[in-house]
Design a binder for these strands. Structure first.
Lengths: 215, 215
DNA sequence: GGGCTGCGTGATAACTTCTAACGGAACTTT
DNA sequence: AAAGTTCCGTTAGAAGTTATCACGCAGCCC
């Protein structure tokens, strides 16, 4: 707290403007999607003209990367704090869904269609693995009841992604199941593929969650 | 076969050029993503200059809509013909995965992040429900073994999306499970979220399929 | 208070989609 | 076969976009 608090007025202003830019960017993404994000439009809404934004972000890519980083950070924090407060897998699942519905485009920015050329910086994948770690912790708390599958054996030999987590292969498998199944329901719901089908997406989500927990 | 074959030379040429445009568009989408689709670039690659494309497509949106339609059509045909040749749910699932891996961006164009403002024309949703119909047919062939869930009861009252299909609620539920779970694994794989994790996505897909069939 | 740092501006370049007006080629009709 | 019509591809241009540059001025630091 010695240096980081001692921001010069210029640094204060800079971080504040950067935050304001991101705020407008999120607003724009929520209404028109990430691909329609326009630096010009953001600048005009903030009262400045065009190239001024380049003082704060090197370009569109850097801004989007920062938004992706923030999204990962937000999700990781939300899940981690929920788990720290004693949430089990069911509560974590609903926490995830609530976070996703809060801002669908934010979820889709992380888990939606990627830009083919784009590669996330290392620190982003590190945040992502934080989320995976809490998921693994939560899965490890459940009693082991599922019989070993061939895929479990495969995971025993390919567990680098667990990043040193001591969970047995069955738990790794359970975590992957949670991730992929919840994402399956959630992403289709957020993409609007359930609209007009008549049923309640929340109930389908709950049904999948029941299946996962009953396993 | 009286009139539809009797294309005037101009109609022939027109449909051929439209097809060629789409071909270049797919190529471009596969390498740079749908958001980077440039009419100008397509025109230049075809040896014509810019605005000539507007003779064939009213604009970027119409071209993309047609690509989406083709993608839905391709998937519906692939699954339908597989089912007609006797494929069961397991084969259908692998047919889906093979189709998706053939051109990941084509799958993501359908099931990936949607443009917030965009609404698909009616004929596209009709093609989509064709796919759902074959999935329901395949699910109906399996012996009913799963106990009724609360969500089944909900589906009994919200089955408009089945479009008159006579399958019982448990089968509807099974179809939704197939759809969401396979999409969950597949979309994460195609989006590259498994790269660097070490395990084989094909085995995870197979494990999920086993789970679905063992239910 | 003087001097350096850095912010915001307008001008430019190279893109994009998309409209409009024109010339010419190809097909249709007489 | 010749005239007429339709439709294609062109160039020119408007309104956007991202991004770079040089300039002026304000604010911060010493």
């Amino acid at each position: 707290m010695a240096k980081s608090d001692a921001q010069t007025p210029r640094e204060r202003y800079r971080t504040q403007v950067r935050a304001e830019i991101k705020e407008h960017a999120w607003e724009q993404i929520a209404t028109a999607g990430a691909s329609a994000l326009s630096l010009n439009a953001i600048a005009k809404r903030m009262g400045m003209s065009g190239p001024a934004l380049y003082r704060y972000y090197a370009g569109r890519d850097e801004l989007i990367t920062e938004l992706i980083r923030d999204a990962y950070r937000s999700l990781a924090d939300r899940l981690h704090s929920a788990f720290a407060e004693g949430a089990d897998l069911a509560v974590l699942a609903h926490t995830l869904r609530a976070w996703a519905l809060e801002d669908p485009q934010r979820y889709l920015l992380i888990y939606g269609t990627p830009v083919p050329g784009y590669h996330a910086p290392d620190d982003i994948t590190r945040i992502s693995s934080e989320t995976m770690a809490t998921l693994l912790d939560a899965c490890a708390k459940l009693p082991p009841d599922s019989p070993a599958t061939p895929f479990d054996a495969h995971l025993a030999d390919h567990r680098d992604w667990a990043d040193g987590h001591p969970a047995p292969p069955a738990v790794l498998h359970r975590a992957l199941r949670f991730w992929t199944r919840l994402h399956g329901v959630l992403s289709l719901e957020l993409a609007g593929h359930f609209t007009g089908m008549g049923f309640d997406p929340a109930l389908l989500f709950a049904a999948e969650l029941d299946d996962l927990l009953a396993h």
